[in-house]
Design a protein around this nucleic acid. Structure first.
Lengths: 70, 70
DNA sequence: ACCAAAAGTTAAAAATACTTTACTTTAAGT
DNA sequence: ACTTAAAGTAAAGTATTTTTAACTTTTGGT
């Protein structure tokens, strides 16, 4: 599992969103800074719930934030 | 966390897809039948990876299969 | 150069997702 | 009514995600 990591555009979206920091995003999402770090770097993929919350913060669809390459 | 469970249309999509069984879906997705059961009944929400795979099986977008109510 | 905030890393513990096995109940066909 | 596949439940174990805490490195401003 986690064969092909899911890519994401969190970093780009953070900077596009007025240079939002990892800490700020973490607080808005309700997870820790380290969790955002790990997800942003594709160390592992988040739960669906966290993924939805991240997309919500940026006002984007889930697919715009996360890209799964089957 | 997991305050408001994420809803899904897996059951409807299975029946729409030629009455696909939980077992068949599980095999296509690469998880067990019990995992499909738990997700279908919103006992817990899947990882993003499993969510993407389920959507892929039905040829639907993630948001069409799973609905997050912030 | 110095300072502070942000980002990155690591390790151990806690929480949650997933598996395996085994059993019960429901639904459908003959 | 009987049989069988499908669906539902539950417990214990494994795997993965998330937290906490502590420390290092990078970046930007003054």
């Amino acid at each position: 599992m986690a064969n092909v990591p899911i890519k994401n555009k969190i970093r780009e979206l953070r900077f596009f969103a007025d240079e939002m920091t990892q800490k700020e995003l973490a607080e808005l999402v309700g997870v820790t800074r380290q969790t955002i770090m790990a997800i942003e770097k594709s160390k592992y993929s988040p739960t669906l719930e966290v993924a939805f919350k991240i997309a919500e913060v940026f006002g984007q669809s889930l697919e715009e934030v996360f890209q799964y390459e089957g």
